[in-house]
Design a protein around this nucleic acid. Structure first.
Lengths: 195, 195, 195, 195
DNA sequence: GATGAATGAGGCTTCATTCAT
DNA sequence: TATGAATGAAGCCTCATTCAT
């Protein structure tokens, strides 16, 4: 594996466990099996590594969430796929999602990041907007539809810090449907479901 | 105002803006209008201040959310009140909620904090559990009902970092009802509403 | 008891246990049952307290060692009395002797202290010098006779830090005689003993 | 010369002159010709340096004192050699002996140090014990025989802080014999001397 | 290219001393 | 007179970054 990639993986894990300042360049280099100075062959500064980690993580998350999803089709099937994809993120790529969470609450998070990230999620916003326009979803800012539905994946991950539970397939199914109900104009209707 | 309280307010704001390590004891003391050493008359260490800020913040949030709520009555009215209370938190006490978010993702967050916080939210868990027992709410771990409903208040606050929108009363009403639909066994039913 | 005296006793004990810098003015005042600021009513500075403690301790030690001793009479009886007095110091006034030891090895110990202390021990130097002049003691600088004989009381106290033993009367008697033999011109002779 | 060794030498000298707290890490580093932070490449903390200085000093002292001494042979020749070795310590390695003195009276001196040091001097204790068993030395705890005889080397060094005298060979010879007399059962006898 | 010793600014904390009450 | 809050200099230590080898 690429040394640079190894460095990023090590760093992400350590940042999550110990915070951005709890993990020094020395420590990262040591964990990645290189000398301190070699770090700067891959990243011009610690901050640059952090910023790149965020971009990579966010890209990774989008890739996961949008995987196998036809965002053009505003229906439950698409949403359900994203929900399951998100759950897969929790289960198989927890680090990436925790890092995103960490970064977005840190002083590293900049206006530029904000714009970049918004753009990454634009397809999802469009998805919600189309649903609104079609009278399927409640009429409110698209971002709030997101907050009420798909964003709860993050809430679920966060709850894991307090409670122990297992994310079974049936639970995922249940929650996917539940969060879908939140944003429908006429809950319980079959609207948007594939019939 | 109490100097200790002033220190905590200053610290909370600076921590949110600059992170735990981005804000030095000297800076906090200066902003609070005292000499560096005086900090230690009020807190035995920077870490102690941080931990106390969390406990205070969490207590504050619980107080806000549970205000005027009859948690014994498992119905929409109670839930709606909590939702509106949460929105009030976003609007009038944003710092407190952002700080909680920051702390829970930091290495300061300990097993002890976890237990303490769980206990603080116990009444809410009971609220959800009763709803489950009554056949009103979907049958899943109570904490996940929380993640699907009330926890979205935090999502809404987080969206504010990316999008500009105004939390009008009608929007709050709309979202309160939307998130309520997510957890109902039979969405759209009037179950649980006061008739 | 005098508050000033109490302060000195507390300070001496704490200095021995924790070193001069291991014990703050705050701590001393607290242990002596007074407010921090009150310390400065009794001593103009921490250093002044330390210096006075040394003078007091040294005076105290001289008083103990010379007690009931007729230094004019250069004989074993006088020496034995001093030895026993020194042992009493070890047993009943350990703090004072340990403090002297501490101070004389610290940077507080000044040329002025040196002169003052020499003067305090002058009677003992004279005692040894007279013995030399009488042909009773070995011919060497009086201070070295002291080092070979009475000073071993301090060595005995220091050994206590490494070994456990009890200073019985018979042991004291034994050591008094032993150390006396070291300085006699003709060891084992009865010279100087009271017959 | 090794930078680490240079640091230790500088530190030992400064500690003796200014006490453990009178000499900062910055000062030591500066005197050793390095930046403050570089200190921590060689020692994990100031305290660790201090502890290692003690162990080194004590080892050094033992090496000096026991040099060319056949401790198995309980006789004046062996003792005289140790005495002269000790005097050599005073004259050529004063720092080491003063540091030992300083440390053993400081709060750094621990139970572990005590045990370690006792073990280092075990050969000397055995020397004295054998002399007791042979009826050569006075019957008292071996450590006290040490306090009455060889330990006076330290007393002599301490007297140097108060009095000026020169340690001539004849003086050393004189004192070696004198301190030997102190511990003999029958002073003045030729017992133990090589005939 | 890789190394890791070296740098020194900056952070947390302590503490002797002052002074308003 | 007694108090104890307040001060701020100074100490220990960490760490991002540089650079000679």
């Amino acid at each position: 594996m690429d040394k640079r990639t190894g460095l990023m993986q090590v760093a992400m894990r350590l940042f999550i466990e110990q915070g951005f300042h709890g993990c020094s360049v020395q420590e990262m280099a040591r964990h990645a099996g290189m000398a301190t100075g070699s770090f700067y062959r891959y990243f011009s500064s610690k901050e640059e590594l952090i910023r790149q980690l965020y971009r990579n993580s966010m890209q990774h998350i989008c890739d996961i969430v949008f995987q196998h999803v036809d965002l053009e089709r505003t229906c439950f099937a698409s949403y359900r796929q994203m929900w399951f994809n998100g759950c897969q993120g929790i289960q198989n790529h927890a680090d990436v999602m925790l890092f995103k969470d960490l970064y977005e609450r840190s002083p590293f998070f900049s206006a530029e990041d904000r714009a970049w990230t918004r753009q990454k999620w634009q397809p999802l916003d469009d998805f919600f907007q189309r649903g609104i326009d079609q009278g399927l979803f409640r009429d409110m800012p698209a971002c709030l539809l997101g907050a009420l539905s798909l964003a709860t994946v993050q809430c679920v991950q966060h709850e894991h810090k307090f409670y122990d539970f297992e994310l079974t397939d049936s639970l995922k199914e249940h929650m996917a449907e539940a969060s879908w109900q939140a944003i429908l104009v006429s809950p319980s209707s079959l609207s948007g479901r594939e019939q």
